[in-house]
């Protein structure tokens, strides 16, 4: 049951990622079409800070970060424990990847918060 729940969460994350990644692409890579900015403007420090101060952007990026890290690392766990080399070490692999995920999530959240709170 636990594995089913983890799998279902990963499936839910993929739906979220498709929507949020679409938004990310629209804002960053198709800025001339969707926001009227050039790519260089969209990537400039000041515009990036301005964007990051928006509450909606803050929420979107935290959700995106969590969903992408969970789906990516959960899938990586699946690939690793399927290999013969990892037989009997599934728990260790799972915990190691969980730790990596938490470290990157904490760092990404800190960077997003820093951008949000910078005046």
């Amino acid at each position: 049951m636990r594995e089913t729940r983890l799998w279902f969460l990963s499936l839910t994350c993929t739906s979220l990622i498709i929507v949020l990644l679409g938004l990310h692409f629209a804002i960053m890579h198709y800025a001339p079409v969707f926001t009227g900015q050039t790519i260089e403007e969209a990537r400039s420090f000041q515009v990036m800070l301005e964007r990051g101060r928006d509450v909606a952007q803050f929420v979107v990026y935290i959700l995106f970060l969590a969903a992408a890290l969970y789906h990516g690392l959960y899938s990586l766990r699946g690939i690793i424990i399927e290999l013969p080399v990892a037989r009997g070490r599934a728990r260790l692999v799972g915990r190691g990847l969980l730790l990596i995920g938490l470290v990157f999530f904490a760092y990404g959240t800190y960077v997003t918060w820093w951008t949000f709170a910078t005046k």
Binding site: S44, F45, Q46, M48, L49, L65, A68, L69, G72, L73, S75, L76, I79, I100, F104, Y107, G108, V111, W114, T115
Partner: peptide
């Protein structure tokens, strides 16, 4: 998928470069 997870981790580190200031980011 393997490529994208590697990219995601690098991308998180890369976006963190903004903490070093405008010159580093630019």
């Amino acid at each position: 998928g393997l490529g994208l997870i590697a990219y995601l981790l690098l991308h998180i580190v890369e976006t963190g470069q903004r903490l070093a200031g405008e010159a580093a980011w630019t």
